[in-house]
């Protein structure tokens, strides 16, 4: 299978604190990977390195056939190919839902307003929210906002999607609508990396689950194996806490 992401001996420090410690991970096209682990384990930093949002000090990051430079000089080349969804949605409050989705296609891909608008509406329909297109983000519920954020990322027609704890900031009752959207997306064959604590989602969608702690990858396994017979002690402890 074609490789989409290749991380080789990736190391990153914040000052003297090592957030990522010799990360090796390879992800194929159309694969779905869920990353979990306690807070501060470096999982968010990891996917931010994939998207060239964070510089790193050593190792190599290869995304969509492009080698990410350590200082992030070719960051935009990566970022236009990689979609990202944030914990806090980060929708642009001053733009309508539609404009949120058309800004990047217009400015980065050079689409006309009409082309970008049509594409935005297509993806807004896909996340089942087209009727909200003319509203401002502040007028939407959290779940709706996060679905718009997913549509916004999709309008760039990315080769892979990154999710950074997309449901952590949501009220419990709307978590499902966002997860359902992600499941739909997964079924279209999109390459996905999700940092999440939603173990149900991991069981349903993931091809592999990665467990991280203290900047290291502790365990990589299929969901069946990961949940039923985790090999590492720290994984067992983490699962007992998360699954209750």
């Amino acid at each position: 299978m074609e490789t989409c992401i290749n991380l080789n001996d990736l190391n990153k420090w914040f000052g003297s604190f090592q957030v990522l410690d010799s990360i090796n991970l390879s992800i194929s096209t159309a694969e779905k990977v869920v990353i979990c682990g306690p807070s501060g384990s470096g999982k968010s930093t990891l996917i931010r390195c994939v998207n060239a949002l964070e510089p790193f000090q050593s190792g190599s990051v290869n995304v969509c056939g492009i080698s990410v430079e350590k200082n992030g000089r070719n960051a935009t080349d990566i970022q236009r190919r990689v979609g990202m969804v944030f914990q806090q949605f980060n929708l642009f409050p001053h733009l309508s839902v539609l404009k949120n989705c058309t800004l990047a296609p217009c400015r980065v891909l050079g689409l006309s307003d009409d082309e970008a608008g049509a594409k935005a509406m297509h993806y807004l329909e896909r996340v089942r929210i087209p009727e909200q297109a003319s509203k401002y983000p502040a007028d939407l519920s959290g779940g709706q906002q996060q679905r718009v954020a997913i549509a916004r990322a999709l309008t760039m027609e990315p080769e892979l999607m990154l999710f950074d704890e997309p449901t952590s900031a949501l009220d419990p009752e709307v978590v499902t609508e966002v997860l359902d959207t992600m499941v739909d997306l997964a079924e279209t064959g999109m390459t996905m990396i999700c940092v999440t604590h939603e173990m149900g989602f991991a069981k349903q969608v993931a091809d592999r689950v990665v467990f991280m702690d203290e900047g290291k990858i502790i365990e990589i396994a299929t969901p069946e194996k990961f949940f039923s017979e985790p090999t590492h002690e720290r994984t067992q402890f983490f699962l007992s806490r998360v699954l209750g």
Binding site: T76, N90, V108
Partner: peptide
């Protein structure tokens, strides 16, 4: 302006001036 805003914009591939 929240850091997440320019970060989200970067993640969409927008350039500095944009």
């Amino acid at each position: 302006v929240e850091y997440g805003q320019s970060e989200a914009a970067r993640a969409l591939g927008l350039g500095k001036n944009d």
